[in-house]
């Protein structure tokens, strides 16, 4: 009988929806086994109740020392739990936290680990599916046979819910490790001049813009469309646009009426920040760029041909 554990992800004072997605996957693969959530924090009762609607069992791990995330403590309490309750599969969100502690947990459990998975098949051996080359290819990997497997799971994939009313168990586990890493505090994002999440039109540039001097072209287009200029990670990393203009998981989430993606290939981290825009138009030289998978309209071509023509026509109309 298979036991599938899902470690809940707590956002800022709320249960991150990816927690339910982990349980959806757990319920899909458990067979005649169980889906079991683990929720870690200083006061987790309300989260546990929410999780119990989707899991056969919810394990509470509560302690004041667990108020702030610390990977050493997470690994510590999970190892304590798993020494008694033997997991077959452990599912963790592929978040900034999950991606950090899950591999170390796997080392300590002597378990194979596969990250950022979008598919999992346990019917005949263990086979996990994930993207490589920033979303350009998929790979199915066969995982070596083991007692326990650890996977970090991509958010937004396992949406099919299955209602299970489970029990809530207080694990009684307390952190016991001597912590080496010390949490100092959360650093707030710097506020910029423009809030790109409030704009109706976002002209967003990626690596295809080639050089800082070409940002001007995007600014001209944004001006005639009455929008703002934003960018993907490589543009921000290069210092061509300030950090507050970054669209993506680690930047801002935007939902404008029009999102114009110029020379953006469309890494998952970017797509999560703009996929809910009302209209997405992408211009990219590479017909295989993942951005075309999320855009309604695509232009396979050079932004330096298309954008100047567009600016000119728009100016003619506006007179």
């Amino acid at each position: 009988m298979m036991r599938v554990f899902a470690i809940a992800e707590i956002g800022s004072e709320e249960l991150d929806p990816v927690s339910i997605e982990l349980l959806n996957l757990a319920n899909a693969i458990k067979g005649d086994g169980t889906s079991e959530a683990v929720v870690i924090g200083d006061d987790v009762s309300s989260y546990a109740e929410e999780l119990a609607k989707h899991a056969d069992r919810v394990w509470k791990v509560e302690d004041s020392e667990l108020k702030n995330y610390n990977p050493e403590l997470y690994v510590d309490v999970l190892l304590q739990l798993f020494s008694k309750e033997k997991p077959d599969v452990v599912l963790v969100a592929n978040s900034s936290r999950g991606a950090e502690y899950a591999p170390v947990l796997a080392v300590k459990l002597n378990a194979p680990v596969v990250t950022d998975i979008v598919g999992l098949d346990v019917s005949n051996g263990v086979r996990a599916t994930r993207y490589i080359f920033q979303g350009k290819l998929l790979v199915d990997v066969l995982v070596r046979e083991a007692e326990t497997y650890v996977f970090t799971v991509r958010q937004g994939v396992f949406k099919d819910e299955c209602t299970v009313q489970g029990e809530i168990v207080d694990s009684g586990i307390k952190p016991s490790a001597e912590v080496k890493r010390e949490f100092v505090g959360i650093v707030e994002p710097e506020a910029g001049e423009v809030d790109i999440s409030q704009a109706d039109v976002v002209v967003s540039v990626g690596r295809g813009i080639d050089d800082a001097s070409n940002i001007e072209l995007a600014e001209e287009l944004a001006e005639v469309l009455g929008g703002v200029v934003a960018g993907s990670r490589p543009v921000i990393d290069s210092g061509w646009l300030p950090k507050d203009r970054q669209v993506g998981i680690s930047g801002k989430t935007v939902k404008p009426k029009l999102y114009l993606a110029l020379g953006i290939s469309g890494a998952f981290q970017h797509i999560m920040g703009m996929k809910d825009s009302e209209l997405i138009v992408a211009v990219n030289k590479d017909p295989e760029a993942p951005i075309f998978g999320v855009a309604q309209y695509g232009i396979v071509g050079d932004i330096f041909d298309v954008v100047p023509a567009l600016i000119e026509k728009l100016r003619e109309i506006k007179g």
Binding site: F183, K243, I249
Partner: peptide
């Protein structure tokens, strides 16, 4: 460390 949504997390190791 970089977190989601432009936030950071400061630690001493």
């Amino acid at each position: 460390r970089e977190l989601e949504g432009g936030f950071g997390e400061e630690n001493i190791l």
